[in-house]
Design a protein around this nucleic acid. Sequence first.
DNA 1: ATTAGGAAAGGACATTTGTCCTTAGCGAAT
DNA 2: ATTCGCTAAGGACAAATGTCCTTTCCTAAT
Lengths: 190, 190
Amino acid sequence: MLRTNQSFLSYLEQLYNAQQRKEDIIVKSFPKGKRLLVQNENASKIMLIKDGITKCFFTEENEKEYILEFLSKGEIVGEIELIRKVPCLCSIEAMTDVTVYAISIPYFTSLLKTDIGLNNLLLEVFAERIVNTSSRASYQQLYTTEYTLAKLLELQSKQEIEISREDKAAYLGITIRSLNRALKSLGHSK
Amino acid sequence: MLRTNQSFLSYLEQLYNAQQRKEDIIVKSFPKGKRLLVQNENASKIMLIKDGITKCFFTEENEKEYILEFLSKGEIVGEIELIRKVPCLCSIEAMTDVTVYAISIPYFTSLLKTDIGLNNLLLEVFAERIVNTSSRASYQQLYTTEYTLAKLLELQSKQEIEISREDKAAYLGITIRSLNRALKSLGHSK
DNA sequence: ATTAGGAAAGGACATTTGTCCTTAGCGAAT
DNA sequence: ATTCGCTAAGGACAAATGTCCTTTCCTAAT
């Protein structure tokens, strides 16, 4: 649920340190609450999270939010949009202060065409995401809220994140009211 | 919903015709109803659909099915499991008679490490799948059944597939009973 | 300490969805 | 044509979820 990717982070640190001109990859910071990417807008950079925690979420036309995943160290954002040449599918918001490696589009494009190591790393990331997203879609449809909430709480307790009730509800795709009921029936009344 | 990929198909036809030893890629057939991959079993080949229509679905522990997508010409299966080195996440079943290019694991692995063209094709496929799966997960959670059913019917009418009621329900993650109700309220009573 | 304002939690009702069982519809065999 | 048997559709009730509004709780100001 809180995704990280140490090998991708190492790979990018290497690229960052190796560059002569310090223009292809720069380090950027986002304070808590700021958005790294905004849904429907064009991404100006590909970013790889160096530190901090973000949430990746859709805002549907009916104003409801749906959180896809929580992204942390070593996770990349904006690359899907570049590959498919479309505006941002979802927003990425800093849940803590965040720093990123911001990679220029032309540089990243050239890497895509030449660097098989990057390609392999990306394939692994994508494979992982497909597995997560699709298996979550499946069990959220087919199981009760209580079951999926229990799974979320379990995952949360294994990691160090603090997830607000709003975010829990948005992750489960339910209302706060339903979340409260489910929490109560799981004995997490407080 | 019915996914196809002409460029990947052309790419593979080229590889198939180019091979000296006719062992790396062979053509295989599956009659309607047969499974190309079975959930939780290990895939012995990577397959690319040459002709026919398949469905890709999870079977959850509570016996319910959830259809992720319908795959046709040029779509690849088994590659995610290879990349992540895990057994099949879902089953792929032939909805019509199907023929595939079956690629040996060692050959595909070597292509992954050397062929940037294949890597780029795969990245595009993966990006597409992530977009589809995640945006579907989002609106299935946040919109009414009627809305998503209407979307399914619309997509179906644009393509040439016949989808049974069971499969429609499995695609929407709802029961047949709910599907019937939704169909009636949309005026598709028959 | 008291009170006012605002946000979070919960009650009540409406709507949706699932389960279970009955009824209707259809094809095959006689 | 009639009946048997199976499958699909729908009714009735139960459970789950959403909406709306009231109540409770917390904080800050006096």
